[in-house]
Design a protein around this nucleic acid. Structure first.
Lengths: 199, 199
DNA sequence: TTTACAAATGAACGTTCATTCATGTCAATT
DNA sequence: AATTGACATGAATGAACGTTCATTTGTAAA
């Protein structure tokens, strides 16, 4: 009736925190179980094995990233507006899900082949969406860039880095940080940046 | 007379490749030994333990990065010129040492406290050198950026990302890729970019 | 030729790993 | 009241882990 076991979500939460902190190979089933307050064997009532927990986290994260970023982009906007929208929602999503983003970035190599190809495909689609924006802007000369593919990857690296240092509990406001990355990304492709109106 | 044991360097090489591919915790001493064609126990003739191999690789890489990047920056140049010099040498260094860079980025968390603080300190100095350039450029208004510290980190993330996808054996030339990152970095802080003269 | 020492071996150590399983609990259905 | 089935337990499994060590090998100094 509640829709989802509570324990399964507790396991997800513990695994997310631990994987992000010590890496997939640096975390044991025993540690995960201990953080949930259960015995190691009990985890296997909810996930068939350790690898399945990682795949579950990654797929759910990709789904939500797609929903939070790609789905919000309006094709009728200009390339610069679309890029700004992409960067804004992407950085915000990263800030709000630092552990998931960190895991997605670091642990692709810990995935076994079948999971890896699926996640890679999903991720390439993500990169392609950004490249399409850059292609458009380059064609109409609002963007100044010599290679849209490389610029797309460089923007994604740049935005992904926010999870390494930023914590919502820290001194800076999320909005300020997002704004700063919007400026850096727009300018990096040679587009002008207009700060939001002071009020 | 040769100055360095051959086997010790072979161990370094195998560990570098394996750590970069599977992560520190995803590699066993047995695997390293096998790639060197020795028995596991023999590694302990050259390194006191597994952790020491990682520390050795990281320190050597930091030393060389410092030598290849920071040391080449001439304080008498303009901020834009210094930034270009920084980016150019940094990306080139990343391209030429992809495994070391990848390890340095991914495995900070695998370092035990004493090694971690030392490496962190070294890395902060690196970041500070870049931030100093941005501060200068912001003061004289040649750079347009709202937060030098964040822009410095975003540039380092951007440049670090090159190791994820670029391989020297691939279709693109190192020079073209470097040039592209120089453009992205300069523009990201609002500095103009002038492509090198065609000839 | 003897001595010395660094390097390599191969077996062993205790520990921890992911996973399995027989058993027990308890709330919901019959 | 009886039955079911999802969830939890706690002990056990064999494999793999980092590391140690007594011993052998090879080479260079004495």
């Amino acid at each position: 009736m509640t829709g989802e076991h509570n324990t399964k979500n507790l396991i997800r939460g513990a695994a997310r925190r631990l994987f992000a902190e010590h890496g997939y190979n640096g975390v044991s089933m025993r540690e995960i179980a201990q953080h949930v307050g259960k015995q190691p064997g009990g985890i296997y009532n909810h996930f068939p094995n350790k690898q399945a927990i990682l795949v579950d986290l990654m797929q759910e994260n990709l789904r939500r990233a797609h929903e939070a970023v790609i789905a919000t982009i309006d094709d009728r906007l200009s390339p610069a507006e679309r890029l700004e929208c992409f960067v804004r929602s992407h950085v915000l999503h990263n800030i709000e899900n630092p552990d998931d983003i960190f895991i997605a970035y670091m642990e692709l190599r810990s995935l076994e082949p079948e999971g890896a190809t699926h996640v890679s495909k999903e991720r390439n689609g993500y990169e392609a969406a950004l490249r399409a924006i850059l292609d458009d802007g380059a064609k109409s000369s609002v963007f100044k860039l010599s290679d849209p593919a490389i610029h797309a990857r460089s923007i994604l690296s740049m935005l992904g880095g926010v999870t390494v240092w930023f914590r919502q509990s820290g001194p800076q406001s999320s909005a300020d940080v997002v704004e700063c990355y919007v400026q850096a990304a727009l300018q990096s492709v040679g587009a002008p940046y207009y700060p939001p109106i002071e009020r």
